[in-house]
Write a protein that binds this DNA or RNA. Structure first.
Lengths: 164, 164
DNA sequence: GTTTATGCAAAACCTTTGCATTTTG
DNA sequence: CAAAATGCAAAGGTTTTGCATAAAC
């Protein structure tokens, strides 16, 4: 999935501005790496970014990718996601959004919902901490995986339903 | 945080039943490891489980803990959580629940909400996949961290607010 | 008694770090 | 030109694996 060209350009402008403000040097590598995350809609991990950028800049090193991604994260230009058992992945979408997560393949897709943006914060959370934002995770099986499952005539998994 | 004794016993009974059904051998180590996750309310990682159980069973090895936790996960007896930059953590709470996550220290606390249990699934997700469950993540600063911040008179972080 | 799980040690994996060299502002 | 970033190689921390021994059914 690819992001609209206009949005990419906006993101890159913003990136340059933030670097300037923060007195962070604008190197070729940083621009390449940020552009790659900004234009990819599917939350790539460090190695994926590295492989993509290396097509144009073959001597980019993987550790620079890591260093840069964490720098961008510290600057608030990208966010991290991805759970256990998979590598850390990065997202340049700073708009308020929610995630669909495929429990089979791990696909994580952004989606937007005004309803979910305006959920009430439960009262009893105030003792736990101060909630800043609520994000909804929709867990399920993505279209691709359910197509595959149908082909292979897989039996549904046999987890018991149990609740305390 | 510790779980109520009755709930722990229910969880252990269920665990034994599932092992029997799945023809998975019920070993001392597996029981110890499951009990530890079942009675801990704070989603321990593998090493934490290992250290706790080793107090009673000193020659338990860490790799058995890993193997067992993933087995329990495959059997649907526990779930994984935890994000990038921290170890995988495990949760024996199979009831429908949501998470408060502290953006400062990573504390993850279960909470319950009937409202959140009954959120409508957005229509436009149907093209992405079949949603099975919606879970809300409340991100914020936990009470402990905000107390610490006040003590240290920390300046608030200076991320710009930017939206596409 | 057969099958399966454990413990040990070693490997694999992803990510980070130290340092000399190069590049940026 | 001073300060900071890169690439290289080596180390770090967590998790996994192969194999002989031990335990469960």
């Amino acid at each position: 999935m690819t992001i609209d060209q206009k949005v990419i350009e906006q993101r890159i402008e913003h990136f340059k501005q933030v670097c300037l403000n923060a007195r962070v040097k604008l190197t070729r590598q940083r621009l390449d790496i940020f552009r790659e995350v900004a234009r990819s809609g599917d939350h790539p991990d460090a190695e994926t970014v590295w492989k993509s950028v290396r097509k144009q800049a073959p001597n980019l090193s993987l550790d620079t990718v890591y260093r840069t991604l964490w720098l961008l994260n510290d600057l608030g230009l990208i966010k991290t996601l991805g759970s256990h058992h998979e590598r850390t992945r990065f997202d340049a979408n700073l708009s308020r959004h929610h995630h669909f997560i495929c429990t089979s393949c791990g696909l994580t897709k952004d989606f937007y919902s005004e309803t979910f943006n305006n959920l009430p914060v439960p009262d009893d959370l105030s003792s736990v901490g101060a909630v800043e934002t609520l994000q909804v995770e929709a867990h399920g099986i993505c279209s691709k995986c359910s197509a595959l499952n149908r082909q292979h005539k897989q039996k549904p998994s046999v987890k018991e339903d149990y609740h305390e």
